[in-house]
Amino acid sequence: MKGHFTFLWLLLVAVVCFGLFLAKYKVQSLETELAALNQVILDRQEELHVLKAEWAHLSRPERIQRLSERFLHLQPVTAKRIDTEAGLAARLERSE
């Protein structure tokens, strides 16, 4: 009886040890992965930062105006073409 108990305890200890060993390795590999991912996040943030600066450079109003004048032939909206919903009725009446 006593021998059985000892054996059972030893088995339990072995199982727990093995489980702990597995968990520890799993955590270690996850931590490495996390650190790598964090580094990737930082790299992406820097790339994003560079892209934002580039976007600001490419969306300069002066450049957009130049491109629009060259390719779109659009004009600024004049005050005449802006009206409220209430003013619309009066306008329609006038045009009729």
Partner: peptide, 25 residues
């Protein structure tokens, strides 16, 4: 949490958040 990427000198933005000055590595 991962440390967020930061420049040594802060950006300057216009009132709509458009970048007027930034730092690049």
């Amino acid at each position: 949490p991962p440390a967020s990427w930061q420049t040594e000198r802060a950006d300057i933005l216009d009132r709509n958040g458009e970048i007027l000055a930034t730092s690049l590595r």
